[in-house]
Simulated scan of single mutants.
Amino acid sequence: MANFTEDQLAQLKTALHERYLALQEEVQNELAHTNDIRDSERSEYLNDTPDDIDTALIDRQINEMRELEMSMEYLNELEFGDCIDCGNEIGFERLLAYPSAQRCIECQSKYEKAFPQESSPSL
């Protein structure tokens, strides 16, 4: 595990938890918005929006929630903060900004160049 102070670990745990709750609320709001549309309006609504846009958004949010859950588990098991590609420390500031980051900035950059079609968050 990367060498973080107790204060940094507490901040990271808070950031993970807050981001998870924010995503959870976004998913609930998106689902509530879709459910609020009456059946007669649903076909008009769906015809006015690109196919699967709501599904894609929710899918990305749920995938990030899963990454956050894994990160919380790693944090509890003291295996948090190391890049999955090179094994180096990801960095406190990066993890604070993007708590579910699994790669250091250098490896994330390489990953995005190698797999540009995937819609994962940028640096």
Results as ranks from 00 to 15, higher is better:
Glu77Tyr: 12
Ser119Asn: 14
Leu9Pro: 01
Asp54Tyr: 06
Ala56Gly: 07
Phe4Met: 10
Ala97Cys: 00
Tyr111His: 10
Asp39Gln: 07
Asn35Gly: 09
Tyr74Glu: 14
Cys107Phe: 08
Leu96Lys: 08
Arg94Gly: 03
Leu23Pro: 02
Gln11Phe: 08
Gln8Leu: 05
Met1Gln: 04
Ser122Met: 09
Glu93Gln: 08
Arg66His: 12
Glu89Tyr: 06
Gly87Ala: 02
Glu79Asp: 11
Gln11Lys: 15
His33Ser: 15
Tyr45Ala: 12
Gln11Pro: 07
Gln24Pro: 00
Tyr74Ile: 01
Val27Ile: 13
Pro50Trp: 00
Gly91Thr: 04
Pro116Ser: 04
Glu77Lys: 15
Phe115Ile: 10
Thr34Met: 12
Gln108Val: 01
Pro50Ser: 01
Leu123His: 11
Asp51Asn: 03
Ser43Glu: 15
Ala101Pro: 06
Asn76Ile: 05
Asn76Cys: 03
Gln24Thr: 05
Leu21Gln: 15
Met70Leu: 12
Cys83Tyr: 09
Gly81Ala: 08
Phe80Thr: 15
Thr49Trp: 10
Gln28Val: 04
Gln61Val: 00
Leu75Lys: 09
Met70Val: 09
Ala56Leu: 07
Gln11Asp: 14
Asp52Pro: 00
Ala10Asp: 08
Lys113Gly: 05
Ile105Met: 12
Cys107Arg: 02
Gln8Glu: 15
Tyr111Val: 00
Ser109Thr: 14
Leu68Gln: 03
Asp54Ser: 11
Glu41Met: 04
Lys110Ile: 14
Leu68Trp: 02
Arg38Met: 09
Asp48Asn: 13
His17Val: 01
Gly87Asn: 03
Ala15Val: 11
Leu31Tyr: 05
Leu21Cys: 04
Ala10Phe: 05
Pro121Asn: 03
Asn47Met: 06
Gly81Pro: 09
Ser119Phe: 11
Glu112His: 15
Met1Ile: 01
Ser40Lys: 07
Asp82Gln: 13
Leu16Gly: 08
Ser43Cys: 02
Gln11Val: 06
Asp54Gln: 12
Gln102Trp: 03
Cys104Glu: 03
Met65Ala: 05
Gln117Thr: 15
Met65Ser: 04
Phe92Val: 06
Arg60Lys: 08
Ser100Leu: 00
Leu46Asp: 12
Glu77Phe: 12
Ser120Lys: 07
Ile58Pro: 02
Thr5His: 07
Thr5Val: 06
Asn29Ile: 09
Glu26Ile: 07
Leu68Gly: 04
Ala97Pro: 00
Glu79Ser: 05
Gln102Asn: 08
Asp85Ala: 10
Glu67Ala: 06
Leu12Trp: 12
Met72Phe: 10
Glu106Arg: 07
Ile84Arg: 14
Ala56Val: 08
Phe4Lys: 01
Phe92Arg: 03
Gln11Ser: 13
Gln8Val: 04
Glu44Gly: 10
Asp51Pro: 14
Glu44Phe: 14
Thr34Cys: 05
Lys113Pro: 02
Glu6Cys: 00
Leu96Tyr: 04
Ala114Lys: 10
Leu31Thr: 05
Phe92Gly: 05
Asp59Gln: 11
Lys113Ile: 11
Tyr20Glu: 10
Asn63Leu: 04
Ser71Cys: 11
Ile90Gln: 09
Gln61Phe: 00
Cys83Asp: 06
Ile58Val: 13
Asp59Arg: 11
Ala32Tyr: 03
Ser109Lys: 13
Ser119Glu: 15
Asn88Lys: 12
Asn63Thr: 04
Gln61Ile: 00
Glu25Met: 04
Glu93Met: 02
Arg66Tyr: 10
Ser71Val: 06
Glu18Val: 05
Gln24Asn: 09
Asp39Ala: 07
Lys13Cys: 09
Phe4Glu: 06
Glu93Ser: 06
Leu68Val: 04
Gln61His: 02
